[in-house]
């Protein structure tokens, strides 16, 4: 399993548009991708748009993506790229 964290700096947080991009990208992979929000102590399946939206992640919160499964490396790379391209926040790789 691999993971990375993001300090969300996007002023709109993880609202519909970024949530949609994440869910759409996640659905392409076989591995389990989960999204954790530290403040709410909640973890959801990143393939599920409504679940991500209902976290209502706000600017300033810290989240983590976990990847677990056969294609985890490529999913990890794509997600880092997504976070950077869409200016979601500062990516922290372990």
């Amino acid at each position: 399993m691999i993971s990375f964290e993001v300090n969300v700096t996007d002023p709109e947080g993880l609202h519909a548009r970024p949530a949609g991009i994440i869910a759409k990208a996640a659905s392409k992979y076989k591995c389990c991708i989960s999204l954790k929000v530290y403040e709410q102590e909640k973890t959801v399946d990143a393939k599920r748009l409504f679940k991500i939206m209902s976290l209502a992640v706000k600017c300033g919160q810290k989240i983590a993506f976990d990847f677990d499964g056969e294609d985890e490396m490529s999913a990890y790379d794509e997600f880092i790229k997504i976070c950077k391209d869409n200016a979601l926040g500062d990516v922290i790789c372990q």
């Binding site: 548009r17 949609g20 659905s27 599920r48 748009l49 409504f50």
Partner: peptide
């Protein structure tokens, strides 16, 4: 158009199907 883009993502989302 963005309204419809968001709706397309919603309808294709597995949690819509699940519920």
């Amino acid at each position: 158009a963005q309204i419809f883009e968001a709706q397309e993502m919603m309808i294709r989302s597995p949690d819509f199907e699940d519920s």
